[in-house]
Write a protein that binds this DNA or RNA. Structure first.
Length: 467
RNA sequence: GCCGAUGUAGCUCAGUGGUAGAGCGCUUGCUUCCCAAGCAAGAUAUGCGGGUUCGAUUCCCGUCAUCGGCUCCA
């Protein structure tokens, strides 16, 4: 059933205006998605909650918004220009593609004999290696370099001098600004710099809806600590970040930590632990929401060396100077939005007017994430009710994103709002004209309460904390 | 990028070498109407390009996209 839940949620996203395929009227662009009226609200709410939790509510974290395009020398220093390039070869017989270095390593490992020196994988001739798929030996294309960075050219002519790269992570913008931020904000380690923004990776295989795309949005925080304190801060942030998801209503059983194997760590990492969500994809059930990495002093050290700027901290209390270690919680906006949607999706049974039972689709989103906080619904489209309801909606819009809907039957409008996760529906009925009160119906319990018109704003404010 | 499957309305799906169908959804009107109600009316589709043909949504080729598998996922 989980796989079909994803399909159902994708269908809901298109139908109700959360996510559209990019450029659909021209046939679409591979794995690029646009966020519709409800999707942009949900995505903004997720980012706002992250920013509040990770930056605004903390005395030891400040924010930053750095450029997408950075000088090429940043990527040379960070190691991305070397590490993001892989040699690919293709079997001439069956056209299957492999990473050349993986083939050579596998061959060297297989042929290694006890008591002899290990074979250097780099020296293994491709003539010796057979294709694992079709068995053809030694028939390979010349290796071609696959670059995971997206390129662009700045300036009036397309030349090598104008070659720049779009950032594959927002983190480097934080590292190169480390010294200035520390000075101007007068922070001392342990402290962090948080940033939300778009990143770009030329993924070979994007897919799974908005889970893996070439253009994506990240919420990253680099937390600078004294060397030696890094491991305990790593544990601290793992717990903090897991708590962020469960605090926003994600079912704990659908979340887990995943420890990266030491040999698979990225070029900068000492230890990385992912927070994964049980999406129920075909093939792999769990998908990464966020990586919490110990980047050591790799980035600040390499930028110090390449730029000549001193990126270290002088502790006047002890007279020591050291380069901070970095703990990095890096979360994906788009994939977390998908997780929040999948986790909130429910089909309830609800009685209908005919005495039968209908299926009620409801997104049980946390109130802070819900795209629409309240809907104002006149019981009937009517010369008296509709204007009164419009006035109320107008007042409430000063505080929250509020819908107004006076079409068709009231039951249908409740169901529409349930489907997009609206916590409260406010009904203006014929009695309203007499008693100056409205009925407010709650999404999850379907319970109703009569509230005076003059008290509606306060009533909602008490039930929408942090929204 | 390779192999396989698929592409018809907003969604889910029929169907045909000769004027394109349904259900749900959507819009409008009526019904003093609290959980997908009723009645009436209405809008919307063959991914794109080429070929064969008197005529192509249907057959063929290409392309784009989606799904599954492989390679990749720092």
């Amino acid at each position: 059933m989980p796989a079909s839940t994803i399909d159902t949620v994708i269908s809901l996203c298109k139908r109700r205006g959360f996510v559209y395929q990019c450029g659909e009227i021209y046939g679409g662009t591979k794995s690029a998605w646009d966020y519709g009226p409800l999707g942009v609200e949900l995505k903004e709410n997720i980012k706002r909650q992250w920013w509040r939790t990770m930056v605004q509510s903390r005395d030891d974290v400040v924010g930053l918004d750095s450029s997408v395009i950075l000088p090429t020398r940043v990527w040379e220093a960070s190691g991305h220009l070397a590490a993001f390039v892989d040699p690919l070869v293709e079997c001439l017989s069956c056209h299957r593609r492999y990473r050349q270095d993986h083939l050579q390593e596998a061959y060297a490992e297989k042929k290694a004999k006890p008591g002899q020196d290990d074979i250097d994988p780099d020296t293994v001739s491709m003539d010796l290696i057979a294709c694992a798929n079709c068995g053809t030996k030694g028939q390979w294309t010349e290796p071609r370099m696959f670059n995971g960075l997206l390129k662009t050219y700045l300036g009036p002519v397309e030349s090598e001098e104008g070659l720049h790269y779009l950032r594959p992570e927002t983190a480097q913008g934080i590292f190169v600004n480390f010294g200035q931020v520390m000075t101007s904000s007068r922070k001392k380690p342990p402290f962090g710099i948080g940033q939300i923004g778009k990143s770009f990776r030329n993924e070979i295989t994007p897919g799974n809806f908005i889970f893996r795309t070439r253009e994506f949005e990240q919420m990253e925080m680099e937390f600078f600590v004294k060397p030696g304190d890094d491991e305990q801060w790593h544990e601290y942030w793992l717990e903090e970040r897991m708590g962020w998801y469960t605090g926003l209503g994600v079912t704990p059983e659908n979340l887990r930590f995943y420890e990266h194997a030491a040999e698979k760590l990225s070029h900068y990492s000492k230890r990385t632990v992912d927070i994964e969500y049980r999406f129920g994809f075909q093939g792999s059930e769990w998908g990464e929401l966020e990586g919490v990495a110990n980047r050591t002093d790799f980035d600040l050290t390499t930028h110090s060396q390449h730029s000549g700027s001193e990126l270290s901290f002088h502790d006047q209390a002890t007279g020591e100077r050291w380069t901070p270690f970095v703990i990095e919680p890096a979360a994906g906006v788009n994939r977390s939005m998908m997780a929040f949607l999948v986790d909130a999706y429910a089909e309830d049974e609800a009685p209908n007017t005919k005495g039968g039972v209908d299926v009620r689709t409801v997104l049980r989103l946390d109130h802070r994430l819900a795209p629409v906080k309240a809907a104002v619904l006149p019981l009937s489209r009517n010369e008296a009710l509709s204007p009164a309801a419009r006035d109320l909606a107008k007042e409430l819009r000063g505080y929250w994103n509020v819908d107004f809907d006076d079409t068709q039957a009231i039951g249908r409008r409740y169901r529409r709002q349930d489907e997009i996760g609206t916590p409260f529906c406010i009904t203006v009925d014929f009695e309203t004209l007499e008693d100056q009160a409205v009925t407010i119906r709650e999404r999850d319990t379907m319970q109703q309460e009569r509230v005076a018109l003059s008290q509606v704003r306060e009533w909602l404010a008490a039930r929408l904390p942090g929204c």
